[in-house]
């Protein structure tokens, strides 16, 4: 093996290696079970939002698809898990997988809508699909509970072993495990040749085509995966709260998750997780100060982020990555 080849292999391996901060993040999340026992409900909320944002990152950060209706998949997953638990099987993991499948298939079915046209067409079709589902959910009251929401869910213990407790301890652990496993999977996907081709399509579709990449299948695949992730996030919400509000399909959720991802920075998977932590803490803090006008603040934050410049604001993860890269690069030499 030549020096160059050895160097190249070290560079490629370094991409896939777990970073110190990644491990620290997960350890902190696990430590929270013992250190913050009174905060587990809000932590569960963060974990669910994080998973939802990671799913958006797969299409926005990696494939460059701007969606105004990502909550369609989140809401569909929530209803799928809720209805399954109410009427058939109340075991959470079964419901999780079921919701992932339902949303994933729906993502697959609607993925051709984002293949064609400009950003604007994509915005409209994703938005339209979400509104359509919201309308359906509202009309099909016999199935979904309509405007009153879906209630009457009572989950059985996870895998028949761990019961959801009042303090939300097992609920948090359950959601965290799902987030860790799914982030691990997403990490694997994004570090594969498939992931590399997605990034190429986003950056320069003309050149990507000239390398023989057919963008359609790649986008369809990642869209379906992302939809399944969002569906599972929705399922977690339904299962940990025993309730599905029609609000899961509301427009503001699609906007919220965009904001979450933008706060944390798109395109490196962890943006959704950091964003969810910051977003939830901000919301808690601001809604204590002015409970009704959270919406005003969220709007102001969005405007401010754009005016200041997303790159400048969310440059910190990139900076961190660059620093770590140069360090691992040196180590690799």
């Amino acid at each position: 093996m030549t020096d160059h080849q050895a160097h190249a292999l070290r560079l490629l391996t370094a991409k896939h290696r777990w970073r110190v901060w990644e491990i620290a993040l997960w350890l902190a999340a696990i430590a929270a079970i013992f250190l913050l026992p009174s905060q587990l409900l809000i932590l569960t909320e963060i974990v669910i939002l994080a998973l939802f944002a990671v799913s958006l990152d797969l299409i926005l950060g990696y494939a460059g698809i701007v969606s105004l209706g990502h909550t369609a998949f989140f809401g569909l997953g929530a209803y799928a898990a809720g209805i399954l638990a109410r009427d058939y099987v109340a075991e959470p993991v079964t419901g999780l997988v079921f919701a992932g499948l339902v949303s994933g298939l729906f993502g697959l079915a609607t993925s051709f809508l984002v293949l064609r046209g400009s950003d604007l067409t994509r915005l409209m079709t994703t938005f339209g699909v979400a509104m359509l589902l919201a309308e359906l959910g509202n009309q099909a009251a016999w199935l979904t509970g309509g405007a009153d929401g879906l209630s009457g869910i009572s989950m059985t213990p996870i895998l028949g072993l761990f019961e959801f407790d009042l303090w939300g301890r097992n609920g948090y652990i359950y959601c965290l495990v799902v987030l860790i496993v799914l982030t691990f999977v997403a990490r694997h996907i994004t570090n594969s040749p498939f992931g590399l081709s997605l990034m190429a399509i986003k950056r320069n579709p003309r050149r990507a085509a000239m390398l023989g990449i057919s963008p359609k299948r790649r986008i369809v695949t990642v869209y379906a995966v992302s939809a399944a992730y969002a569906g599972m996030a929705g399922a977690l919400l339904a299962q940990t709260t025993n309730f599905v509000s029609p609000d899961v399909l509301a427009f503001h959720r699609s906007a919220d998750v965009l904001l979450v991802l933008v706060i944390g920075g798109a395109g490196y998977l962890y943006g959704g997780i950091f964003g969810a932590i910051i977003f939830t803490m901000l919301r808690d803090w601001l809604s204590v100060a002015t409970p009704q006008y959270w919406m005003f603040w969220i709007g102001l934050i969005l405007v401010a982020i754009v005016m200041i410049g997303r790159e400048r604001l969310t440059g910190w993860p990139a900076l961190l990555a660059a620093r770590l890269k140069s360090r691992t690069g040196e180590a690799a030499r």
């Binding site: 926005l60 503001h252 969005l302």
Partner: peptide
């Protein structure tokens, strides 16, 4: 377009909250 979308959604939210207030 993403920036424009984020920005204008932000304005909408502010307008809604302001009207409510």
């Amino acid at each position: 377009h993403l920036d424009q979308v984020l920005f204008s959604i932000g304005l909408v939210f502010m307008a809604i909250a302001a009207a409510d207030y």
